[in-house]
């Protein structure tokens, strides 16, 4: 069963990232079902959900790493499966567990990814220098990545994501396993990207991050969207005081629908 709605006109509504009825299934499991989503320029949208909810699958389809089973995803109007190359060129992708090449220095890694984006060498050098300056990477820009601390590596990763100045950023749990200093540094980078007019989609299961950053939030659980809207809308809908509470209620509801017996843990917190 394939149902595709026509994509909304990107330029008019300023939508840079869009998903329509996006679905991904594997031989024995449906990882994501019917995701509708739009992120406009200068907007940060959070994808919230517990582990295994389908967040990473969704983001990977935006990044053209996975092909949707049905539905469509587009970056700046380019379909991620049929125009993957163009879509990828508009995109910076970062995840918490992304590693860098151990035997390359951050500067060499930037050069490499610049070339993969088909940039001129002169442009790559100037962009890299600017990013190294801005992210404070001067001390370690020419050391091999295997010598760097986790925080330094993640900074290098951010630089790698931004080297081609993409209009769209996709961040898959970018702060996972980072200390608080680097974590907040990344959050600041996201705010700054928003200020620069980029569209940012990021996934997390940390409520405070979502609360702090997101203009809108999409909550997914077991591959399905259970709620979408601004923080206040979600809170109002669930009658919860905090976003965390709202989230738990939303997720708890879905659990109740799927399994007839009450999930004691969820319902306990919900009260």
């Amino acid at each position: 069963m394939r149902y595709i709605r026509p994509m909304t006109e990107t330029k008019e509504s300023n939508i840079l990232l869009e998903a329509v009825a996006l679905r991904k299934e594997y031989p024995r499991v449906v990882a994501l079902d019917h995701l509708d989503l739009a992120v406009r320029a200068g907007e940060v949208v959070g994808l919230l959900g517990p582990n295994g909810a389908g967040k990473t699958t969704a983001l990977r389809m935006f990044a053209s790493i996975l092909t949707p089973t049905s539905g469509r995803a587009a970056v700046c109007g380019f379909d991620t499966s049929t125009e993957a190359l163009k879509a990828k060129q508009q995109l910076g992708f970062l995840s918490g567990d992304t590693a860098l090449y151990k035997r390359l220095s951050p500067r060499e890694a930037l050069r490499y990814f610049g070339r993969l984006h088909d940039m001129e060498d002169v442009l790559i050098e100037s962009r890299s220098a600017a990013l190294i300056e801005r992210l404070g990477m001067g001390d370690f820009a020419d050391r091999h990545c295997e010598m760097l601390s986790t925080g330094q590596q993640q900074k290098a990763n951010i630089a790698r994501t931004l080297v081609h100045d993409p209009p769209v950023l996709i961040l898959d749990e970018p702060t996972v396993s980072l200390d608080i200093v680097t974590g907040s540094f990344i959050l600041e980078t996201i705010r700054r990207a928003r200020a620069e007019g980029k569209a940012v989609l990021f996934s997390t299961h940390i409520m405070s991050e979502a609360e702090y950053l997101c203009d809108r939030i999409v909550v997914i659980h077991k591959g399905r969207v259970c709620a979408a809207g601004t923080r206040d809308e979600l809170r109002a809908r669930t009658g919860a005081v905090s976003l965390a509470e709202a989230f738990l209620q939303l997720v708890g509801e879905t659990v109740d629908i799927d399994t007839p017996s009450d999930n004691p843990e969820i319902s306990c917190v919900g009260e």
């Binding site: 990977r60 190359l85 992708f93 860098l100 151990k102 993969l116």
Partner: peptide
């Protein structure tokens, strides 16, 4: 194993 394959796949290379 090192986790760099995904990074490479997000880059616009066929």
């Amino acid at each position: 194993e090192r986790g760099t394959m995904q990074t490479l796949l997000t880059a616009p290379a066929q």
